[in-house]
């Protein structure tokens, strides 16, 4: 997924859309907005980022899961099998992005890239709702996918590259 920080207005629509799509309980979220302000008035810069699980290629949450509930599914989405999860929280501690939370029903929950939608060829709910079209999703191997086209000719960065997790959220700058 690529997030265009030049267009995001930080409205949090992605957060509500995720909540209603995935029945995320009130008070919790699978995605969130970060506002970064730098500079001194009147030379100020600001960046909004819509953040969520980075679906890392080298995912510490999967490595540290004692039951195998956390796993990388075919295609690269990091998932939690709820009935295998004992809610120990090791994955929450290991995640450098703070992307996981303990669901009140006893398991650890996180972004699934709306796998139930993606399976049918739809985009994740956050991508389809964004009024600024700042979220792009798809196959990085396919040069014509939405995400590849969005990243073409643009500078990008990932979050906490030093953690070595090979994150798969790309922030366009």
């Amino acid at each position: 997924m690529a997030i265009d920080t030049k267009k995001c207005v930080g409205c949090s629509d992605c957060v509500v859309a995720c909540q209603t799509e995935n029945n995320v309980p009130h008070g919790y979220c699978r995605d969130w907005i970060v506002e970064n302000v730098s500079g001194t008035y009147p030379v100020v810069e600001m960046e909004f980022r819509s953040e969520r699980c980075n679906h890392c290629d080298n995912a510490p949450c999967v490595r540290c899961c004692p039951t195998g509930a956390s796993h990388i599914a075919e295609g690269g989405i990091v998932l939690v099998t709820h009935d295998e999860c004992i809610g120990c929280g090791a994955c929450i501690e290991s995640c450098p992005y703070d992307a996981r939370y303990p669901h009140p029903d006893g398991y650890v929950d996180k972004c699934t890239f709306c796998i139930h939608r993606v399976e049918k060829g739809q985009n994740p709910a956050c991508v389809d709702v964004c009024p600024t079209h700042c979220l792009h999703f798809g196959d990085l191997e396919d040069p014509n996918s939405d995400v590849s086209l969005a990243m073409k000719d643009r500078k990008w960065r990932v979050l906490a590259p030093e953690a070595g997790t090979k994150p798969q959220l790309y922030f366009l700058m």
Partner: peptide, 29 residues
């Protein structure tokens, strides 16, 4: 390498299994 097109065919390990676990989990919280 990841190819996003592939994960369309996620089977039992993913969402399906999670759905099965649902009824037992709901009573917890």
């Amino acid at each position: 390498m990841k190819t996003r097109r592939q994960f369309i065919k996620i089977s039992a390990a993913g969402a399906g299994a999670a759905a099965l676990g649902l009824h037992t989990l709901n009573v917890k919280g």
